[in-house]
């Protein structure tokens, strides 16, 4: 595929998709919680714009709606909720140190290459440009997962989880021009409920182990008494 053969909005889709990936990297290495939440909000906004652009190019009206939904939910509502949570838990200034930031980021790039490699055989199935977008979205999902692994902080883990969801949505938009509206509404609702549940959980975790560092959850293990 040659970029020059595409129209300007289509090129813009690629640029934005690449930016989504960039935000994933920022999320991965951003140690300050509030900044990470901002980055996540930007990722949501970018995904929403991609969806809207895809809708515009393909003249798909219902994608506008999904885009609006994403924007409202992931770029505004959830970040706002997280912000409030963080403020109420007095963790505005909290930051966690990654052990090997360079190594974490490098593994991230390896994941991107891996995602690209996975998607390559799909060449004959799909149109090339959506395949490339699919690679990006898969990479975003994997990066979100990687973030869940390397971050010990509960709020950061939630961000990783949410960015997995962003990646999935991007993939859906890229591969099938969006899911049916009912499914999307359902997913959006799920995410919202999950967010509320997470909020409740945060307070619970904090009550029981006096920290949001999930590595300390092992205190709850029953073997501890024996040891």
């Amino acid at each position: 595929m040659n970029l020059t053969q595409l129209s300007l909005p289509e090129q813009a889709i690629f640029v934005l998709a690449a930016l989504v990936l960039l935000v994933s990297f920022i999320l991965l290495s951003q140690t300050r919680l509030t900044a990470a939440i901002h980055a996540f909000a930007w990722q949501g906004a970018l995904v929403a714009v991609v969806a809207a652009l895809v809708g515009w190019v393909g003249a798909d009206a219902h994608l506008y709606l999904s885009a609006g939904l994403t924007l409202a939910l992931k770029a505004l509502l959830i970040p706002w909720m997280l912000h409030r949570l963080v403020r109420r838990l007095d963790m505005d200034a909290e930051r966690e140190a990654l052990v090997h930031p360079a190594l974490v980021a490098l593994t991230g790039t390896l994941l991107v290459v891996f995602a690209y490699w996975l998607v390559l055989p799909l060449e004959r199935l799909a149109v090339t440009d959506t395949r490339n977008l699919l690679a990006i979205s898969l990479a975003t999902v994997l990066m979100g997962f990687w973030m869940l692994v390397v971050r010990a902080q509960a709020v950061a883990q939630v961000l990783g989880f949410m960015s997995i969801e962003n990646g999935l949505f991007l993939g859906a938009v890229a591969a099938t021009r969006g899911m049916p509206l009912v499914v999307e509404l359902g997913v959006a609702f799920d995410v919202l409920v999950a967010m509320i549940l997470f909020g409740v959980f945060f307070f619970q975790i904090r009550e029981s182990i006096d920290s949001l560092d999930t590595d300390r959850l092992d205190r709850l293990a029953e073997t501890e008494e024996e040891a």
């Binding site: 040659n2 690449a18 960039l22 090339t128």
Partner: peptide
């Protein structure tokens, strides 16, 4: 370096005909 590497990756992923 990460930026430049991402540039390289997105060039290879998004812009080259495979």
């Amino acid at each position: 370096f990460l930026f430049a590497l991402l540039g390289m990756l997105s060039f290879l992923i998004l812009e080259v005909a495979a």
